[in-house]
């Protein structure tokens, strides 16, 4: 057994070594730079263990953001049994910037509810992918969006690792991205918590400075270790998010993608971005050089001929 394992290991490391040598890049190259977020930026800590799925947050969001009427009343719990394309649970849409889903965990006696919305990343993928700079990460921590410059390419929707931005496809004249802006315009800017946070009867969400929330989260885990899994989702995911979560069950069981890694999305794009200036600087010289090389033979022949003809002229 051990022999095979070791051989496998050796083989693997050899192959890895060859590849690493051939390409000269390692994963560490990514971590050279990262933005930890503005120092006093705010955030929200969502304690899933407290949510009872009353959907008051959804109603509060709808009211605060002036969204159109929902398809079903906000006190209608049958939405938890809805499934959309691919058997997936509800998601954010142009009519709902936040959504609560129910997860039935067999080992647990009661269901777990999970609220989600834009997580307001420290280094937002949507922001870095936008070619008209429509997104802004404010110093308060919100990721806001300017619909007036949006061209509608929808790259931000491709880039968002949480599948958050929605698009008003139904509008032919003015389709724009629709997503949670942490109530920036009406509340956060004035030091007030987002509407959903304030409306939640169970205070599932704690609003405060992001760094304080991490302390609170850790204290909760420490003082009641059997209530929580030992992880604050969003503390490090994709470079850290302003919205973070505590859960009593492993996060992948309640709809979180636990394979996103800790690098912000832009770090995957940097390999390409790094070659841009290189190509811009080196290519002109390189290819003009090729041109000269390719034509040197011709040029020399011509030179020789002219020299020859001159000599002949001289002889005559």
């Amino acid at each position: 057994m051990k022999k095979i394992d070791r051989r496998k290991f050796l083989k693997g490391s050899l192959a890895g070594g060859v590849v690493a040598a051939a390409t000269g890049t390692t994963k560490k190259a990514h971590s050279a730079y990262s933005f930890e977020g503005y120092p006093d930026s705010m955030g929200v800590l969502v304690d899933l263990t407290k949510c009872v799925g009353c959907r008051t947050c959804e109603a509060a969001c709808n009211k605060e953001q002036g969204l159109p009427a929902p398809d079903k009343p906000f006190d209608d719990m049958s939405v938890y049994d809805e499934h959309r394309h691919g058997g997936l649970k509800r998601r954010t849409s142009e009519k709902a910037y936040t959504v609560v889903n129910r997860y039935d965990i067999p080992e647990k006696g009661e269901p777990v509810y999970r609220k989600f919305q834009c997580n307001h990343c420290n280094e937002p993928a949507c922001l870095t992918s936008c070619f008209v700079n429509a997104y802004t990460k404010t110093k308060e921590g919100a990721v806001i969006y300017d619909p007036k410059v949006c061209v509608g390419c929808r790259t931000c929707m491709i880039a968002c690792p949480f599948y958050v931005p929605a698009y008003s496809y139904s509008s032919p004249i003015d389709p724009v991205i629709k997503k949670c802006i942490m109530c920036y315009d009406t509340r956060l800017k004035f030091g007030k918590p987002p509407a959903c946070v304030e409306a939640c009867p169970r205070e599932v969400m704690t609003f405060g400075k992001r760094e304080d929330l991490i302390k609170i989260g850790n204290q909760k885990i420490r003082t009641t270790p059997d209530r929580y899994v030992n992880h604050i989702y969003g503390e490090h995911e994709v470079g850290g998010t302003a919205w973070m979560y505590l859960s009593s069950v492993p996060f992948d069981q309640v709809g979180f993608d636990t394979k996103l890694g800790t690098q912000p999305i832009i770090s995957y794009v940097k390999d390409f971005l790094a070659i841009v200036p290189m190509v811009l600087c080196i290519w002109p010289a390189l290819f003009t050089g090729f041109h000269l090389l390719a034509h040197r033979k011709n040029a020399r022949q011509q030179d020789n001929q002219t020299v020859k003809s001159k000599k002949e002229e001289g002889h005559e």
Binding site: N62, K63, P70, P73, F74, D76, H85, S93, E94, K95
Partner: peptide, 19 residues
């Protein structure tokens, strides 16, 4: 009104909200 419930309940809508 806040919950769009009771007399403020929305008309049973067709499933038009994207997917």
């Amino acid at each position: 009104k806040f919950f769009y419930s009771g007399e403020y309940a929305p008309e049973p809508a067709d499933n038009s909200s994207g997917h």
